[in-house]
Amino acid sequence: MTSKVFVSLRVKTTPERAFAAFVEEIGAWWRPNGLFQTTPRAPGVLAFEPGQGGRLTETLANGKVFEIGRITAWEPPARLEFTWRQANFPLELHTEVEVRFEAVGEETRVSVEHRGFDQVPEGAARHGFPDEALLMRLAEWWQVLLASYRDRSA
């Protein structure tokens, strides 16, 4: 088994629009967090390449493109899954993010499940945090991200 961080909220739109905003507008709603740096450099702009196997990239100010992960499940408008790897992770470590979009009346419940963060070893990516503190910070960051995404998608 693997650790799991789950957060969810409602957005006032359809699953179709919610899915599209998540994928196509991630560059606008993403909020970088110093505890979860993707690269050692200043945060860049995130973008998905839509479709199965598409990349999640971060384009830095100097033009370099860092690959954060790849889309492992592309099921619009219900489900999206992608891998997540920070530059300070060991090479073989990929964590996994699953996003679900579920219609509830006229709203959409958007939930994010980030799995495997407990496997991040001691070192730069962990900041000396024990599992529970690390997972709590990760969950709080996803709450900030989803709130920003909600404001963008509605």
């Binding site: 088994m1 789950f6 909220l9």
Partner: peptide, 16 residues
């Protein structure tokens, strides 16, 4: 009620 946050450790135990 709707689950809005859940943390589970590697053994699947609920942490929060």
């Amino acid at each position: 009620f709707e689950l809005s946050m859940l943390l589970e450790d590697a053994e699947g135990n609920l942490a929060h």
